[in-house]
Design a protein around this nucleic acid. Structure first.
Lengths: 107, 107
DNA sequence: TAAGCATTTAGCTTATTAGTTAAATAAGCA
DNA sequence: TGCTTATTTAACTAATAAGCTAAATGCTTA
Protein backbone atom coordinates (compact mmCIF):
# COMPACT_ATOMS: atom_id res chain seq x y z
CA UNK A 1 0.00 0.00 0.00
CA UNK A 2 2.79 2.41 0.87
CA UNK A 3 4.54 1.42 -2.33
CA UNK A 4 1.41 1.99 -4.39
CA UNK A 5 0.67 5.45 -3.02
CA UNK A 6 4.32 6.34 -3.24
CA UNK A 7 4.36 5.27 -6.88
CA UNK A 8 1.22 7.28 -7.62
CA UNK A 9 2.60 10.47 -6.11
CA UNK A 10 4.53 11.27 -9.29
CA UNK A 11 2.81 12.82 -12.28
CA UNK A 12 5.06 11.09 -14.84
CA UNK A 13 4.27 7.75 -13.26
CA UNK A 14 0.52 8.37 -13.28
CA UNK A 15 0.87 9.34 -16.92
CA UNK A 16 2.68 6.09 -17.67
CA UNK A 17 -0.21 4.15 -16.17
CA UNK A 18 -2.64 6.09 -18.31
CA UNK A 19 -0.62 5.35 -21.45
CA UNK A 20 -0.73 1.68 -20.53
CA UNK A 21 -4.46 1.72 -19.84
CA UNK A 22 -5.42 0.43 -23.27
CA UNK A 23 -2.32 -1.34 -24.55
CA UNK A 24 1.08 -2.61 -23.59
CA UNK A 25 4.10 -0.62 -24.74
CA UNK A 26 7.86 -1.03 -24.85
CA UNK A 27 10.11 1.04 -22.63
CA UNK A 28 11.23 3.02 -25.65
CA UNK A 29 7.70 3.74 -26.81
CA UNK A 30 6.79 5.02 -23.38
CA UNK A 31 9.93 7.13 -23.19
CA UNK A 32 8.98 8.80 -26.46
CA UNK A 33 6.01 10.43 -24.73
CA UNK A 34 8.18 12.12 -22.13
CA UNK A 35 10.69 14.92 -22.19
CA UNK A 36 13.07 12.99 -20.01
CA UNK A 37 16.10 10.75 -20.43
CA UNK A 38 15.59 7.02 -20.91
CA UNK A 39 17.37 6.10 -17.69
CA UNK A 40 15.01 8.40 -15.80
CA UNK A 41 12.02 6.74 -17.47
CA UNK A 42 13.43 3.32 -16.74
CA UNK A 43 13.64 4.23 -13.08
CA UNK A 44 9.98 5.25 -13.05
CA UNK A 45 9.06 1.97 -14.68
CA UNK A 46 11.02 0.13 -12.04
CA UNK A 47 9.14 1.91 -9.27
CA UNK A 48 5.78 1.11 -10.84
CA UNK A 49 6.79 -2.50 -11.30
CA UNK A 50 8.04 -2.77 -7.74
CA UNK A 51 4.68 -1.45 -6.56
CA UNK A 52 2.96 -4.21 -8.49
CA UNK A 53 1.19 -1.77 -10.78
CA UNK A 54 2.78 -2.85 -14.05
CA UNK A 55 4.40 -6.02 -15.37
CA UNK A 56 7.27 -6.54 -17.76
CA UNK A 57 7.79 -9.14 -20.44
CA UNK A 58 11.01 -9.35 -22.38
CA UNK A 59 10.61 -10.06 -26.07
CA UNK A 60 13.95 -10.15 -27.81
CA UNK A 61 15.73 -6.91 -27.15
CA UNK A 62 12.51 -5.13 -26.24
CA UNK A 63 10.80 -5.00 -22.88
CA UNK A 64 7.03 -4.76 -23.04
CA UNK A 65 5.27 -3.17 -20.11
CA UNK A 66 1.61 -3.65 -19.32
CA UNK A 67 -0.82 -2.55 -16.64
CA UNK A 68 -1.76 -4.81 -13.71
CA UNK A 69 -5.08 -3.19 -12.78
CA UNK A 70 -5.89 -5.24 -9.68
CA UNK A 71 -3.42 -3.77 -7.26
CA UNK A 72 -4.23 -0.24 -8.35
CA UNK A 73 -7.99 -0.46 -8.03
CA UNK A 74 -7.90 -2.52 -4.88
CA UNK A 75 -5.61 -0.06 -3.17
CA UNK A 76 -7.46 3.05 -4.29
CA UNK A 77 -10.97 1.83 -3.68
CA UNK A 78 -9.89 0.07 -0.51
CA UNK A 79 -8.48 3.24 0.93
CA UNK A 80 -11.40 5.35 -0.22
CA UNK A 81 -13.69 2.93 1.55
CA UNK A 82 -11.66 2.97 4.72
CA UNK A 83 -11.75 6.73 4.93
CA UNK A 84 -15.21 7.42 3.66
CA UNK A 85 -17.73 4.76 4.59
CA UNK A 86 -17.22 1.22 5.93
CA UNK A 87 -15.56 -0.40 8.93
CA UNK A 88 -11.85 -0.70 9.60
CA UNK A 89 -9.74 -0.74 12.75
CA UNK A 90 -8.83 2.92 12.81
CA UNK A 91 -12.37 3.88 12.04
CA UNK A 92 -13.40 2.05 15.20
CA UNK A 93 -11.05 4.29 17.15
CA UNK A 94 -12.55 7.29 15.46
CA UNK A 95 -16.05 6.18 16.38
CA UNK A 96 -15.04 5.64 19.97
CA UNK A 97 -13.64 9.14 20.18
CA UNK A 98 -16.88 10.46 18.76
CA UNK A 99 -18.83 8.62 21.47
CA UNK A 100 -16.59 9.86 24.23
CA UNK A 101 -16.82 13.40 22.99
CA UNK A 102 -20.61 13.16 22.75
CA UNK A 103 -20.71 11.98 26.33
CA UNK A 104 -18.46 14.79 27.47
CA UNK A 105 -20.74 17.31 25.83
CA UNK A 106 -23.72 16.03 27.83
CA UNK A 107 -22.04 17.00 31.10
CA UNK B 1 -4.73 16.12 -8.31
CA UNK B 2 -0.97 16.27 -7.87
CA UNK B 3 -1.50 17.75 -4.43
CA UNK B 4 -3.92 14.99 -3.48
CA UNK B 5 -1.68 12.14 -4.54
CA UNK B 6 1.30 13.87 -3.01
CA UNK B 7 -0.59 14.20 0.26
CA UNK B 8 -1.63 10.55 0.18
CA UNK B 9 1.92 9.30 -0.36
CA UNK B 10 2.69 9.58 3.35
CA UNK B 11 1.56 6.92 5.79
CA UNK B 12 1.06 9.32 8.70
CA UNK B 13 -1.16 11.49 6.50
CA UNK B 14 -3.26 8.54 5.38
CA UNK B 15 -3.60 7.58 9.01
CA UNK B 16 -4.77 11.08 9.88
CA UNK B 17 -7.49 10.81 7.26
CA UNK B 18 -8.55 7.48 8.71
CA UNK B 19 -8.74 8.95 12.21
CA UNK B 20 -10.94 11.72 10.85
CA UNK B 21 -13.19 9.30 9.01
CA UNK B 22 -15.91 9.30 11.67
CA UNK B 23 -15.38 12.48 13.63
CA UNK B 24 -13.57 15.76 13.67
CA UNK B 25 -10.61 16.10 16.01
CA UNK B 26 -8.39 18.85 17.33
CA UNK B 27 -4.77 19.07 16.30
CA UNK B 28 -3.75 17.95 19.76
CA UNK B 29 -6.05 14.93 19.76
CA UNK B 30 -4.64 13.83 16.43
CA UNK B 31 -1.08 14.37 17.59
CA UNK B 32 -1.71 12.08 20.56
CA UNK B 33 -2.03 9.14 18.18
CA UNK B 34 1.41 9.67 16.68
CA UNK B 35 4.92 9.27 17.95
CA UNK B 36 5.97 12.54 16.45
CA UNK B 37 6.37 16.14 17.57
CA UNK B 38 3.40 18.49 17.33
CA UNK B 39 5.09 20.76 14.82
CA UNK B 40 5.65 17.76 12.56
CA UNK B 41 1.99 16.80 12.89
CA UNK B 42 0.94 20.35 12.22
CA UNK B 43 2.90 20.30 8.98
CA UNK B 44 1.13 17.13 7.88
CA UNK B 45 -2.21 18.73 8.66
CA UNK B 46 -1.22 21.74 6.60
CA UNK B 47 -0.38 19.54 3.63
CA UNK B 48 -3.70 17.69 3.87
CA UNK B 49 -5.57 20.97 4.16
CA UNK B 50 -3.71 22.45 1.22
CA UNK B 51 -4.71 19.43 -0.84
CA UNK B 52 -8.35 20.07 0.02
CA UNK B 53 -8.68 16.79 1.90
CA UNK B 54 -9.41 18.23 5.33
CA UNK B 55 -10.86 21.46 6.66
CA UNK B 56 -10.04 23.44 9.77
CA UNK B 57 -12.30 25.37 12.09
CA UNK B 58 -10.91 27.38 14.92
CA UNK B 59 -12.89 27.18 18.14
CA UNK B 60 -11.29 29.23 20.86
CA UNK B 61 -7.75 28.11 21.30
CA UNK B 62 -8.42 24.77 19.60
CA UNK B 63 -8.37 23.99 15.93
CA UNK B 64 -10.79 21.31 14.86
CA UNK B 65 -9.96 19.35 11.74
CA UNK B 66 -12.48 17.36 9.74
CA UNK B 67 -12.49 15.27 6.61
CA UNK B 68 -13.64 16.67 3.25
CA UNK B 69 -14.50 13.35 1.56
CA UNK B 70 -15.41 14.69 -1.86
CA UNK B 71 -12.00 15.62 -3.12
CA UNK B 72 -10.54 12.35 -1.92
CA UNK B 73 -13.10 10.05 -3.46
CA UNK B 74 -13.34 12.03 -6.66
CA UNK B 75 -9.61 11.96 -7.19
CA UNK B 76 -9.15 8.30 -6.33
CA UNK B 77 -12.12 6.91 -8.19
CA UNK B 78 -11.55 9.34 -11.06
CA UNK B 79 -8.02 8.15 -11.55
CA UNK B 80 -8.92 4.51 -11.09
CA UNK B 81 -11.54 4.90 -13.77
CA UNK B 82 -9.17 6.66 -16.14
CA UNK B 83 -6.67 3.87 -15.87
CA UNK B 84 -9.02 0.90 -15.58
CA UNK B 85 -12.35 1.89 -17.11
CA UNK B 86 -14.17 -0.94 -15.39
CA UNK B 87 -12.79 -1.49 -11.93
CA UNK B 88 -11.28 -4.88 -11.45
CA UNK B 89 -13.03 -5.97 -8.25
CA UNK B 90 -16.47 -5.50 -9.76
CA UNK B 91 -15.40 -7.20 -12.92
CA UNK B 92 -14.20 -10.14 -10.85
CA UNK B 93 -17.64 -10.32 -9.28
CA UNK B 94 -19.15 -10.24 -12.71
CA UNK B 95 -16.90 -12.98 -13.92
CA UNK B 96 -17.74 -15.13 -10.93
CA UNK B 97 -21.46 -14.67 -11.56
CA UNK B 98 -20.92 -15.70 -15.15
CA UNK B 99 -19.14 -18.86 -14.02
CA UNK B 100 -21.83 -19.70 -11.50
CA UNK B 101 -24.53 -19.21 -14.06
CA UNK B 102 -22.70 -21.35 -16.60
CA UNK B 103 -22.45 -24.10 -14.02
CA UNK B 104 -26.11 -23.78 -13.10
CA UNK B 105 -27.08 -24.17 -16.71
CA UNK B 106 -25.21 -27.44 -16.99
CA UNK B 107 -27.42 -29.05 -14.38
C1' DT C 1 -1.50 42.31 33.17
C1' DA C 2 0.65 37.95 33.66
C1' DA C 3 0.73 33.04 33.21
C1' DG C 4 -0.62 28.86 30.82
C1' DC C 5 -2.16 26.02 27.10
C1' DA C 6 -2.90 24.92 21.92
C1' DT C 7 -1.10 25.49 17.74
C1' DT C 8 1.85 27.16 14.17
C1' DT C 9 6.10 29.28 12.20
C1' DA C 10 11.23 29.63 11.75
C1' DG C 11 15.52 27.75 11.20
C1' DC C 12 18.17 23.91 10.89
C1' DT C 13 19.75 18.92 9.76
C1' DT C 14 19.34 14.68 7.46
C1' DA C 15 17.28 11.47 4.24
C1' DT C 16 15.02 10.70 0.04
C1' DT C 17 13.88 11.65 -4.72
C1' DA C 18 14.41 13.03 -9.51
C1' DG C 19 17.15 14.04 -12.81
C1' DT C 20 21.66 13.99 -15.43
C1' DT C 21 25.65 11.50 -18.23
C1' DA C 22 28.56 7.55 -18.91
C1' DA C 23 29.06 2.78 -18.86
C1' DA C 24 27.24 -1.99 -18.74
C1' DT C 25 24.21 -5.75 -20.38
C1' DA C 26 21.89 -8.20 -23.76
C1' DA C 27 19.80 -9.17 -28.21
C1' DG C 28 19.85 -8.77 -33.47
C1' DC C 29 22.28 -8.79 -37.61
C1' DA C 30 26.15 -7.87 -41.23
C1' DT D 1 33.27 -11.67 -34.85
C1' DG D 2 32.14 -6.80 -34.64
C1' DC D 3 28.51 -3.15 -34.89
C1' DT D 4 23.96 -1.40 -33.74
C1' DT D 5 19.89 -0.97 -30.94
C1' DA D 6 17.09 -1.37 -26.50
C1' DT D 7 17.28 -1.10 -21.90
C1' DT D 8 19.19 -0.87 -17.38
C1' DT D 9 22.76 0.14 -13.81
C1' DA D 10 26.24 3.20 -11.63
C1' DA D 11 27.74 7.38 -9.86
C1' DC D 12 26.83 11.83 -9.12
C1' DT D 13 24.26 16.47 -8.23
C1' DA D 14 20.38 19.29 -7.01
C1' DA D 15 15.87 19.80 -5.21
C1' DT D 16 12.35 18.22 -1.96
C1' DA D 17 10.55 16.27 2.17
C1' DA D 18 10.42 14.99 7.02
C1' DG D 19 11.83 15.43 11.28
C1' DC D 20 13.69 18.13 15.39
C1' DT D 21 14.01 22.26 18.90
C1' DA D 22 13.10 26.89 19.97
C1' DA D 23 10.32 30.74 19.44
C1' DA D 24 6.09 33.16 18.09
C1' DT D 25 0.99 33.70 17.96
C1' DG D 26 -3.36 33.69 19.98
C1' DC D 27 -6.87 32.38 23.28
C1' DT D 28 -8.20 31.71 28.22
C1' DT D 29 -8.19 32.64 32.83
C1' DA D 30 -6.48 34.20 37.29
Amino acid sequence: MQKVFQALSSQPRRKILAYLSATSLTAGEIAAYFDMSKPALSKHLGILENAGLIGREKKGQFVHYSLIPDNLTNTLTGFAQEVCPVTRPIRKDSEKIAEDNAEDNKK
